[in-house]
Simulated scan of single mutants.
Amino acid sequence: MKINWQGVFPAITTKFDQNDNLDLDAFKKNLDVQIEAGIHGVILGGTLGEASTLTEEEKDQLIKCTLEVTDGKVPVVINIAEQSTKGAVAAAKRAESNGAHGLMLLPPMRYKADDRETVEYFKAVAAATPLPIMIYNNPVDYKIEVTLEMFEELADIPNIEAIKESTREVTNVTRLKTKFGDRFAVLCGVDTLAIETMVNGADGWVGGLVCAFPAETVAIYELMKSGRIEEAVAINRWFMPLLELDLHPKLVQNIKLAEVAAGIGTEYVRAPRLPLIGKEREEVLAIIDAGIRSRPTLPDYKALAN
């Protein structure tokens, strides 16, 4: 499947049961709601997916399950976050053999590679698979920035097609579009900056709170792309306290609580993560409950989709 790197791509959470096993029924329920809301792709195995805690067999199960549920309606993209080039190449090949449609690729984990090492890492993975690749640029969390000069070195590699822009610098979208035109699709990777990056030309949105509120997320995207900015801004103002739950070390616990409140998830996380307790839990639940109570009535945003 050719990937059109446009629209809303949820970084989907992994559902567990009380015995720390995959809860595929809950996982499927959430995916069904995502697809019904009009998402444009699914990303598995990111931070929200707790991928670093999953076995390879569990990852295989999740890919198979996602492909069954999506049934060709939207592309399924697998995140790769490995410590070595060898490991990343193996992960890319495994994703391809499992039927994934594309990859989201982070720089090397743990070791802070320099620019040359990072570019060579990306090139090696791209050479190992024909799958289309989105480079995840998040120097805030992962301490390596993929600069314009580095993207220039990657621009002649045809299957590196997109960038998940998470530098927190909104004008970086303008810089990328000015330098490269449409060579790379650019997707916002920071929930609180989605509208601003779309104004600047971003092609899509890799979301976190979309896991709990897919309709609202897709509505904002479709309204923005249709030029109905005031309507999108109004929904975004309602959404902002919820979106800020993504910008937190415990974003997984936060978003899973929001999924429970929305009726499309479970709260269970895999240790060393633990469910929120005490005042911290109460504060997050207060934000979620306020959002649920004031949830906006959405326009017929699906009619706006191309």
Rank of each mutant, 00 (worst) to 15 (best):
N79Y: 04
N159A: 05
P275Q: 09
E222Y: 00
M150L: 07
L243C: 08
F151Q: 00
C211S: 13
K93W: 09
A215H: 10
V170W: 00
N98G: 02
D191I: 04
Q253G: 03
K250I: 06
K29Q: 15
Y121W: 15
L67W: 12
A202M: 09
V233H: 09
R168K: 12
I78K: 05
T85S: 14
E244W: 00
L276R: 00
D246P: 07
Y121D: 11
N306T: 14
G207Y: 10
E267W: 02
A126F: 01
N306H: 12
L176I: 15
A128V: 08
A127C: 08
R295M: 06
R175G: 05
L209G: 00
I157M: 07
I287Y: 04
V252M: 04
Q61H: 10
E36C: 09
H101E: 06
A95Q: 06
L304Q: 07
I135F: 00
K302Q: 14
R293P: 00
I255M: 11
V76F: 04
P158E: 14
A128S: 15
T217P: 01
E145R: 12
F122W: 07
Y221G: 01
D20T: 13
E222I: 00
F239A: 09
W5T: 13
K143T: 12
E120S: 14
L276W: 12
I80R: 03
T174G: 02
I78E: 04
I39Y: 02
I160M: 04
A202T: 12
L54M: 12
K59W: 05
T167G: 08
I292V: 14
L31M: 14
C211W: 05
A155Q: 13
G201L: 08
P214S: 08
I39C: 03
V218A: 03
W238F: 07
L54Q: 09
K250R: 15
I160D: 01
G45P: 01
A234W: 11
V233M: 11
D141G: 14
P107C: 05
F16P: 04
D289F: 06
D141M: 13
R94Y: 02
D289K: 12
E82L: 03
D182R: 03
G201F: 09
R281I: 08
E117Y: 08
T192G: 15
D182M: 04
E50H: 02
E149H: 10
G72P: 01
A262G: 06
I144Y: 02
E120D: 15
A202H: 10
I35W: 01
I220H: 03
N172Y: 15
G72V: 02
H248G: 11
G102D: 12
W5Y: 13
V170N: 08
A219K: 01
E117P: 02
A258S: 12
